[in-house]
Computed example of a mutant assay.
Amino acid sequence: MAVDRVLANLDLNLLVTLDALLRERNVTRTSEHLGVSQPAVSGALARLRRHFGDPLLTRVGNRYELTPLAARVAVLTGPALAGVRRVFDATAEFDPSRLDREFTLVISDYAATVLGPLVAREIARLAPGVRLRLEQTSPYAVDHAEATLRAADGLIVPHGFVTDLPYLDLFEDRWVCIVSADHPEVGDALTLEHLSALPWVMYVDRPTAFAPAARQLRMLGIEARVDAAVDGFVQMPFLVAGTRRIALIQERLARLLGPVAGVRIFDCPFDVVPVAEAFWWNPMYRTDPAHTWFRELIVTAAATLRHQPR
């Protein structure tokens, strides 16, 4: 009964504000994200501080940090909001055209570029009340996939990095090499000697990095000289263009950005394991009709991508 009295005295809007505040760690950004005034967010923060008996956000230099209690609460707000949404989204017959919900995808800049527009168009066509939020993935998000998926609706990342969570296969892509269109040293073919002699633009080399270039080159006895290290793929063609550099990126992205950046595309002169993208999700959504629809929409969009000529 005491728990019921606590819930009866709480405003569900506070949960929405709490979730945004703990993610943004800034009253101004939270008000912009929620579309409400700063005084309203400040008032909600004051109420939350009284409820928890804790400041939740503390100033450190020119930024705010979560208190230890807020850090514990932060991992609970996403699942709590998802549970509330599932309760109020429940209907006798699910109709996506009447759905008012935001879906969050944690996704690489590569997948966001080649798959994201197809997903966005399908959502606009079938469910105009749905909002799509794309968040850039990171090694931390992948290393802690279970925690990531407590606050997000899906994680799109290649096979080989996430285990013990449900997934749906999406599409495959192959790796290609790119050099500047006016490269003075590369003619009609790319050789292993080129890979050894030319400077590289390479994805940041971490254990959960999403490109196999550095490791596979080392297996060939080639120690790449890295001129530029990046944490995304979209920048690569533009960092290669007009230079002696070389990079290894996904073929679909190379075909899309190559003409804009001014780069040439070559088959790799060594065997590279294809990238196989998958959609990973939290099993708490297994019986959620809205999430089931969203998963099916992602797979449908990926099927369209698979049938597009490369």
Rank of each mutant, 00 (worst) to 15 (best):
V87Y: 03
D271I: 12
L195V: 07
L7K: 00
R131I: 08
Y110C: 11
V142W: 01
L105M: 11
P68M: 05
A189R: 14
L10C: 08
W175K: 02
A151F: 00
V230N: 03
F161A: 06
S138C: 08
S138I: 03
T58C: 07
P207M: 01
V179G: 02
E296M: 08
F233M: 13
V119C: 11
R218V: 03
Q235M: 01
A70F: 04
M284N: 09
A197T: 12
Y110T: 13
R150L: 13
A70Y: 00
A189F: 14
A213C: 05
R310F: 13
P166F: 06
G242R: 01
H33I: 09
A20C: 09
D143R: 15
F52D: 00
A213Y: 08
E122P: 12
R295G: 15
R264I: 05
F161Y: 13
L34T: 14
V84M: 11
R306T: 06
F94V: 09
G262P: 01
L297I: 05
L220N: 04
D89W: 02
L220C: 07
A247G: 02
A189C: 14
A211F: 05
V114L: 04
D4T: 10
R5Y: 01
Y64V: 11
D288R: 01
P283E: 05
D153K: 08
V275L: 04
F233G: 07
A290C: 10
L12C: 12
V106E: 00
P259G: 07
A261S: 03
H291T: 04
L192H: 02
